[in-house]
Amino acid sequence: MSDVSFLGGGSFGTALGIMLGKKGLDVSIWDRKPSVVEDINIKKENIKYLPNVVIPSNVKAYSDIEHVIKNSKFIVLCVPSHAVREICRKIKGKLRDDQVIINISKGIEQETKKRLSEVIKSELPHNHVVALSGPSHAEEVAMDIPTTAVVTSENMEYAALVQDLFMTSKFRVYTNDDIVGIEIGGAVKNIIALAAGISDGIGYGDNTKAALMTRGMSEIIRIGVKLGGKRETFYGLTGMGDLIVTCTSMHSRNRRAGILIGKGIPMEEACKEIGMVVEGIKACKAFYELKSNLSVPMPITDMLYKVLFQNKDPKYGVYELMTRDRKSEFY
Rank of each mutant, 00 (worst) to 15 (best):
F166R: 08
V151M: 08
I274E: 02
K327Y: 07
T148F: 09
V296T: 11
D31P: 13
F171L: 07
I120V: 07
Y158N: 07
D325T: 11
F234N: 06
V100L: 10
G241P: 11
M156H: 12
Y62D: 14
S2Q: 08
E154Y: 12
V54Q: 15
E66I: 09
M267C: 06
V59L: 00
E273M: 13
A286Y: 06
I91D: 03
L161M: 15
N46E: 12
G201L: 05
S105I: 01
L212D: 06
M217C: 11
V54R: 12
W30Q: 08
S153V: 05
I75V: 11
I75K: 10
L304G: 07
E111H: 03
M276W: 01
Q163L: 05
A149V: 01
I104S: 02
R115N: 08
S133G: 07
S63E: 14
N103L: 08
Y319P: 08
Y49Q: 02
I191W: 08
Q110S: 15
K90N: 15
I102V: 15
F330I: 13
S328D: 14
L124N: 09
L161R: 10
I104L: 15
K43M: 10
H82R: 13
I42K: 14
Y305K: 06
K90M: 15
P266F: 02
A193F: 03
K121R: 12
I179N: 00
I120G: 01
F234Q: 02
V27L: 04
Q110R: 15
G262W: 04
K306R: 12
F330G: 03
N293G: 09
H67N: 13
V129Q: 07
Y49V: 14
V162T: 02
G8P: 11
R324N: 10
A210S: 13
R231M: 14
F287G: 03
I192W: 06
M19G: 09
E320D: 14
A149H: 03
I65R: 05
N58F: 01
G317R: 00
L243G: 02
M1I: 09
E140Q: 14
G203S: 00
S133V: 04
I198N: 01
R85P: 06
F6L: 06
V53I: 12
Y319K: 06
S249I: 12
G236A: 10
L308M: 07
L20N: 06
M276Q: 11
N190R: 08
G107M: 00
I18A: 04
C247Q: 06
I182M: 09
N46P: 03
D39F: 03
K43P: 10
F287K: 12
D39N: 14
K70A: 13
E329L: 15
H67C: 11
I18H: 00
I65Q: 00
Y62L: 06
G203K: 08
T148N: 10
V318D: 05
A283M: 12
L194P: 04
K282R: 15
I265N: 07
P135A: 00
S81I: 00
Y235I: 03
G280D: 02
L194Q: 03
H67D: 14
F74V: 05
Q310Y: 11
R222K: 14
V68N: 03
V151K: 02
V36T: 13
V68Y: 09
D31R: 09
G241F: 07
K60P: 12
G228W: 02
I69K: 02
S63D: 05
Y62H: 15
M143N: 08
H251N: 09
A195T: 07
K272G: 10
K282Y: 14
